[in-house]
Design a protein around this nucleic acid. Structure first.
Lengths: 214, 214
DNA sequence: AGGTGTGAATTATTTCACAGCG
DNA sequence: CGCTGTGAAATAATTCACACCT
């Protein structure tokens, strides 16, 4: 089977979001054209993306909304619950721990960790902040495969090494630094300063950029 | 002049971060090889990226760290201060308003807005939360070119239309929805649920992805 | 008619490889 | 030498265009 590009997966995720909307509203079918408009892409792109995984559409009609929603959930692995731990109980950690979008999509926060002794033990939303000392054993006991990193850049790689050793399988990194993981661990990084700098560049060199959208 | 790809700009931003580190430590020069290692890319990529903007390196030696840092800051438009407003005083807005990374890079938060009357008037870090009613006139008065959107998906497009009409020039969107802007406005979106779904896909279809890194 | 599925063409991005300078 | 700068080659991603189904 062909390898799937990261950009394709992001679009699948977006298709899913809008298909769920349409499904809720009771719409039966959606054409690649309609989906493309909703998601800000092109009909050809929609069809190509979906065709990597099967033939879900009906010619002359479009895609069956409810069915395709289910297919996409399965493709993205969202039929199950994913246990997530959050490392770092600062402002960003707080925002993420309470982010409804996570729970809605089947991501359950099973633990929040901080190395600051003053924070450990404090109740925090549903969870209690735990010490980093128990992080490794918790990952193994809870079998949480995903970690969200919301800590300063300095300690990021050290913490990553620690949780990788403990068996984590995927990391969503908010620390503004390059981190490296062994090939069996998936990594995605979100860097807010970098995004703002991208806007700064766009404003400074108007017209030099590839496009103004994202 | 050639158009610059978004991926290139992100890498420039990363080069800058590490060059600043090296500069602080007093390192005089850095080779494309060293920079590539730090940033998780390839030497050829580093040289190509930089070559779009000039010939900054010395053959046989590498790039002068301090000088290149200054060049990159200029290229990215970071020699000046950028005024930023934050729309949405929820958890995410709070995290962003206090994010040191913004200030460090010359982005100053000049206002935080929320449409919830219960929140308006409350002091919040340096700023006081203001009403959305004054948003448009404030954008014009303060001449803030950048808005960070940290509001629910539902109202996102309406708020965008409002601030675009008020003259905003760039938007960093955290609302989990597709928004559209006229071509003269730059837009970047960060969607945390989408990132997690990308990890879910990677975990579910191990080996099907293009690569495990980001 | 209307809209999918897909090979082929196009365009974008990355990597190679090497001439040439310090 | 060592390392940059850069055309040329390779690879990847997107768009086209049309055969084909319902």
């Amino acid at each position: 089977m062909k390898r799937i590009a990261d950009s394709t997966v992001r679009r699948l995720s977006m298709y899913l979001r809008y298909l769920e909307d349409l499904d809720t509203r009771g719409q039966q079918t959606a054409s690649s054209d309609e989906l493309a408009h909703l998601c800000g892409t092109t009909p050809a792109q929609v069809r190509k993306d979906l065709s990597f995984f099967g033939s879900f559409g009906k010619r002359g009609l479009g895609y069956p909304v409810h069915e395709l929603t289910a297919h996409l959930r399965e493709i993205l692995g969202l039929q199950r619950e994913w246990k997530v731990i959050i490392v770092g109980a600062g402002k960003i950690g707080a925002a993420l721990a309470n982010y409804r979008g996570f729970r809605q999509r089947g991501f359950t926060v099973v633990g929040v960790y901080d190395h600051d002794p003053a924070k450990v033990g404090k109740a925090w939303g549903d969870a209690t902040i735990r010490s980093m000392d128990t992080l490794a054993q918790d990952i193994q006991r809870e079998e949480a495969p995903i970690a969200v990193l919301a800590i300063p850049a300095e300690n990021a790689q050290a913490v990553v090494d620690q949780i990788v050793a403990a068996g984590i399988r995927a990391i969503l990194n908010f620390a503004p630094t390059q981190i490296s993981v062994p090939p069996h661990v998936s990594l995605k990084s979100v860097n807010m300063a970098m995004e703002l700098e991208g806007l700064s560049f766009a404003l400074t060199n108007a017209g030099l950029l590839d496009q103004g959208a994202a």
